[in-house]
Structures are given as C-alpha cells and as structure tokens.
Amino acid sequence: MTLADKAVVFIAVLAAGLSFYFAWQPSAPGTLLEIYQDNTLYERHSLNEPATLNVPGKLGDSVIEIDQGRARFQSSPCTSKFCVHAGWMQQAGDVIACLPNGVHIQIHGGQGRFDAIAF
C-alpha cells in the first residue's frame, strides 16, 4: 500500500463512521402507510391493520402487503422487482418505490387510522 492508499483507507473509515452519526437520528416506528400513485396520495392505511392492497399504476397493479406494523411490495409489474426485493419496512420515514409503475409507499409516524371514528 502506498501512502496515498493509507490516506484513502483513513478517510473511508472516518466517512463511514460519521455517516452513522449524521444519518441515524432516532425516529419512531411508524403507524400509518401512505400509498402514492404518480406522486399523488392514493390511499392511507394503518400499519396495524393487516391488509393486501392492489394499487393500480402505469404498468399494472402493485400489490402492497401490510402486516404486523410493516409494509412491503408483495408483487409489482415492473421488471426489476427492486421494490419487491426491498422487503419489509416499518420505521417512520421509510419509503419504497417502484418507479416504472409510478407507485411509492411511505411510512408515517403518529397515530394510525382507525376502522371508524365515532361521533
């Protein structure tokens, strides 16, 4: 290793360490899933309600699964399945997108929706 190599190793380790500090501010587990279609809100769904939702997109229906406070793309008509492979998400602020289909889902914190509001 040259001196320059060592400098790169040093910077790399430092950068990796600092990235944790800056990016990992605490955030609460979310309770509300927002489903967007072409960047407009399509539906909100509580993460406490297990559900399987069909969300129409540019290519076809994406299937969003909600279970045990988590959400994921169960299937998607896009070729890459990038969103499907992203797996489950559950933290407030988490997002998974299927760009070709124009569908993305995002977790929001705070109180979830209810089955009904009595008034």
């Binding site: 559900a51 399987t52 229906d61 896009c78």
Partner: peptide
C-alpha cells in the same frame, strides 16, 4: 425489448 412479468393478485382480506 423489455418484457414484464405478470403475477397473480391475491384477494384482499378487507
């Protein structure tokens, strides 16, 4: 050319 795979949609429970 790109081919897109289709998957069967499960029945929603709600």
């Amino acid at each position: 050319f790109l081919l897109s795979a289709c998957q069967q949609e499960p029945e929603p429970e709600e």
